[in-house]
Design a protein around this nucleic acid. Structure first.
Lengths: 256, 256
DNA sequence: AGGCGCTTGTGAAGACGTGCACAAATCGCG
DNA sequence: CGCGATTTGTGCACGTCTTCACAAGCGCCT
């Protein structure tokens, strides 16, 4: 709270909300709200209550109200939120009104999938370039885009402002690619490579690691198993019980 | 203070020893530590200090020490942590010592990539089955595995215990697949479909949504841009400023 | 043996996020 | 026009996570 906002610009509290600096946790949930809102809009709803929207987004209703309150009062008491208006607001805050160009580096297994992912275009993103360091992949056409060599990045960035860089290379190449992205002015990176990137101040990196997600699930699975199999003699839990004849035995472990 | 799990002989540690219930935030970081530790081990290091490991994992050293302290005291003051021992411990806590079978449902764009992802086998996971609802995809061979119809799930689960289900289907099919997974006893689900899944108590769901990650980055990008280009005249924020080609070359923001 | 430097483990304080519960605001209806 | 039903926005208390700072412990060197 005590963090003073930008100095000098003074508070012109007129039309521009001047991007209130939202809590990170809120920012992370806004896209989820946005998706739920689009669904509601498609279904013909014009307004929605915090209860309804929170259910569609899978969160607590109080949390949703607090989140939305951070970006201003766009609800009507006794009625709810105007779906179209809220969509507009969230998209503005998230910066989706200006369509963002994405450069995807690394056209291997995952890169191919990302290049073909249709969840991008529909949400304000456009893959502007596919890049790879492997000359044998350069020239390949994927989804209407031709793969170019990663060294062409400066030229590409010059021709068209790249908002976000996506790294889908092996871990060994990721840092080098990150450096190249930073060098051409990219300040937001989504990293799928399993490694830590070091970038200068002012550059945001988000990481997605599929194996990590699985390992977190594995922990909970392990923990659940250790709760059901309490008896001290149930030792064989370590081995993966290969000959498991048990037909769907473990069904529905914990219950309410 | 906390109960000390005795380290050695973890290869056969009697019964399941009631894992200390770690904070979620800690659990989410353990896989990262594990990856860093494997790197260190490959590089020949036998011990590592909290400072060194935290740098390799991209976190604060105090945080790392506290995280590790939650699973017992496995460091030596004045020296650091024994790399091999720590690997063993973390793998045990995460439940990776028993190799887990993963069922992957949805062999579209993303499913293909996941099926070919090599980050699984190396970390204690094995894709035990590829499934799809589309009959035209059934029979296809990917990476040595044949795609089977999702209705065969009960038979597959009976033959071999499925630890984790991965959903890589379109959103419209995801809930149905989740129900099927739950029905055969799966209690951990990794969901790539952009939708909220409803599952019974005791079932864990983790969600990964690529578009959401991009939108979060977009927000920060938007915010950074609004700091450099002060909103002097930026009056009508409400309108989506559609024609706004306004020199998108705001690259290069902050920087120290 | 004793001291010294290094590193872990942890108490305490602060920042952050969550959820309850309720006042304030709005609409519809008689 | 006023009243009740409904729903938002938010103050407050609570729990979780992070970070600092330092005592306790360990090994090495003299």
């Amino acid at each position: 709270m005590s963090q003073h906002r930008h100095p000098g610009a003074s508070g012109r509290a007129g039309a521009v909300p001047a991007l209130p600096d939202l809590p990170e946790a809120t920012v992370a949930r806004l896209p989820e709200y946005l998706r739920a809102l689009h669904n509601l809009a498609d279904a013909g709803h014009e307004t929605v209550s915090s209860e309804g929207l929170s259910a569609a987004a899978g969160v607590n209703s109080a949390k949703l109200r607090k989140d939305l309150s951070h970006l201003g009062s766009y609800g009507t008491r006794g009625v709810g939120y105007d779906v179209a208006l809220l969509i507009e607001q969230i998209e503005y805050v998230l910066g989706l009104t200006q369509h963002r160009a994405v450069a995807l580096v690394g056209v291997g297994n995952l890169g191919h999938a990302l290049a073909g992912y249709d969840g991008f275009a529909g949400r304000g993103f456009r893959i502007a370039a596919l890049l790879d360091a492997d000359p044998s992949r350069v020239g390949e056409e994927i989804n209407g885009l031709v793969v170019r060599h990663v060294d062409e990045l400066p030229a590409i960035a010059a021709a068209e402002s790249i908002s976000i860089g996506v790294i889908a290379t092996p871990a060994a190449a990721a840092q080098r690619v990150a450096d190249q992205l930073v060098a051409v002015g990219v300040t937001s990176i989504l990293n799928f490579a399993p490694c830590v990137l070091s970038v200068p101040e002012g550059v945001d990196v988000r990481k997605v690691d599929l194996a990590i997600e699985l390992q977190i699930l594995s922990f909970h699975e392990h923990r659940k198993a250790s709760l059901t199999a309490l008896p001290a003699t149930g030792g064989s839990a370590l081995t993966a019980l290969p000959g498991g004849l048990a037909a769907t035995d473990t069904q529905e472990a914990i219950g309410t």
